[in-house]
Design a protein around this nucleic acid. Structure first.
Lengths: 358, 358
DNA sequence: CTGTTAGCGCCTTCAA
DNA sequence: TTGAAGGCGCTAACAG
């Protein structure tokens, strides 16, 4: 039995070891490591020793001495949602590429940033934080502001999502109104005039913003606003199912919309299932458009037309901005609006060509 | 313009502050914080001061002084894959509940644990690591062993997945042979005799183990082994598509299997799409069974029968074990086999009842 | 039971 | 250009 092999951990080599080996003081070692002033001679000796012993300065001590520990925090919601997991992937990759590590903090979807969580975050040994999901989505601007300002006192932050009034920080955002416009105009081109928005939760600021864009765009295009009361029941497939069932059950066949714009692909997935169950064919009798271009959308029947917000890109971008800010260079208060792309597949009937409804 | 609000960061309160306020030495403060010996009197004074100032000991210094920094590492692959993101979610929640934070390290799917990554991991200030995905899957036992042993010298580790020969550590695993048996016996009950395994990659040790189980179970049940050469082309939906197309194109209609067992739900998703494209109805003409019970499976047409490995549970479990080991109690070398459950839905024709093929 | 002191590994004035 | 020394916040061994 090879039990107890664990924890041999030969004492890690320190700055002293290489100072000794190079025949200089630790101060000199520290200097050459940080690219400070040093004579060519000692620099060479030190570098040789470093290479020899495979020395790497200790994160902990470096941080204790007031330096960067090269680690970032990603505060997110519900990593199981593919939007967030893609974002997370993008963030982790970007962090690693830049020599940073990424600590993950998730919150349950419903909760906003509460006192306990905040304490936890504040105690983490990180150089900065990227915030996305409920921490920047749920609640009003005022509610969010308080906590975020407090967090910001301790470290620089970058938010992903809608901008928060009164918070000056770098913000990565999608122009949700563009995503809505692209969706609606695609549907209009295909002849649809009766379009309904489904899913989402009014707890979410993104949702509210996207829904507002939807309403104003519908008006602008001279379309009838079909159901204006809140149809949102969440962002899950189950929500899409329920929401679709509810919507269609209270509308007569001739009042029924011919197209559904879903809050995200999960909602669209549920809607698709419910439509099938009700015997309503997609896209012949009902067009459906999602949002997020999640991995499963091309494989649905029919393949789902959707909008790609490029979440990996959001994650990458946020991390790069954060690292830039930590480095102390450039603007620390602006929004960067990222592009989104309409991905046309078959669920809106693009293959059927433009039709005339009613 | 409220620029430059950032970084006011009022100096954080230290053990000295509360020592002063309580009128004792820092040693005493340290003792009451760690539940050491102290008189009731000083304990009370110290606790009052702590509560008063909202003091919380500094992670960094604590760790530098040789204590636990209460942080864990999760080394995983491809968080976008719902299996891993669910696992990640479970791990993060468990860590947080126990007062630990979770640092995330992802690797690209193909790579095994290489020198660079290892260096990166070794330099992270964490108390232990959970390893899952390519770090413990890709490559032979010998290849993996070397790196893992090195990592283990620095911190305790828990692996999720197939056990690695020669590595003594705690291991969380699913009994893949059970998952295969459950799948096959379900199909047999429904009358299937011609069953084929699709997808996966022989780079993965889990895959190899699951496939071996498949082959031996097929033999045991006296079924014909349909295609025994490697049909694996990866774990993605695309792989499922390709693999299915390839399989069916080289088999005549009467040699065709009546049931497909997919390496995971993603592969099943792609297979489903390809079957539809080829005009083969599921489940009437072809049964299909997945693995992982991913969120989208109930919403497919038909809803996918699959096996739930309970990845959240794996993540939670691994973290709890790791924390236990860090605490220094109990066994440090054993495998914990977690249950898996067959989730019967419609893609194998359960609603159609048992049939007779051929 | 409590305080003093010496590190943990690194960075940074300050003299030399 | 370099080294000595102090400090970051905390723990633990050692006296008292």
């Amino acid at each position: 039995m090879t039990e107890r092999v664990i924890r041999l951990a030969k004492k890690q080599i320190s700055i002293h070891d290489i100072a000794a080996k190079a025949g200089v003081s630790i101060a000199t070692v520290s200097r050459v490591m940080s690219g400070g002033i040093a004579s060519e001679a000692s620099r060479r000796k030190v570098e040789a020793a470093i290479a020899d012993l495979g020395y790497e300065s200790n994160t902990i001590s470096r941080r204790l001495a007031g330096q960067s520990g090269r680690s970032l925090l990603l505060m997110t919601t519900d990593v199981v949602n593919p939007y967030y997991s893609a974002l997370c992937q993008g963030a982790e990759t970007a962090a690693r590429r830049n020599g940073y590590s990424l600590t993950l903090a998730c919150r349950e979807l419903e909760n906003r940033l509460d006192e306990n969580t905040l304490e936890h975050l504040l105690s983490l040994p990180v150089d900065g934080a990227v915030l996305v999901g409920s921490a920047v989505e749920n609640g009003t601007d005022e509610q969010l502001l308080d906590n975020l300002l407090r967090l910001q006192q301790k470290m620089p932050i970058v938010t992903i999502g809608p901008r928060i009034e009164g918070l000056s920080c770098v913000n990565i955002t999608s122009d949700l109104s563009v995503s809505v416009k692209k969706s609606i105009s695609h549907l209009i081109q295909l002849g649809h005039r009766r379009i309904c928005y489904i899913g989402g939760s009014s707890d979410s600021r993104s949702y509210r913003s996207r829904r507002e864009s939807f309403i104003s765009e519908v008006a602008e295009q001279g379309l009838e606003l079909l159901v204006e009361d809140n149809c949102g029941t969440g962002f899950s497939a189950r929500a899409g199912e329920i929401c679709t069932a509810r919507l269609l059950s209270r509308l007569s066949d001739r009042d029924r919309p011919t197209a559904l714009v879903a809050a995200n692909d999960l909602v669209a997935l549920g809607a698709l299932r419910q439509l099938l169950r009700m015997g309503i064919r997609v896209p012949e009798e009902m067009a459906l458009i999602g949002c997020d271009n999640q991995f499963f959308t091309p494989y649905l029947t029919p393949p789902l037309t959707t909008v790609d917000l490029h979440p990996e890109d959001h994650g990458r971008c946020a991390v790069e901005e954060l690292i830039r800010i930590i480095g102390g260079s450039g603007d620390v208060n602006y929004s960067q609006v990222r592009e989104c792309s309409l991905i046309v597949r078959e669920s809106c009937g693009a293959l059927l060509g433009a039709r005339h409804f009613d």
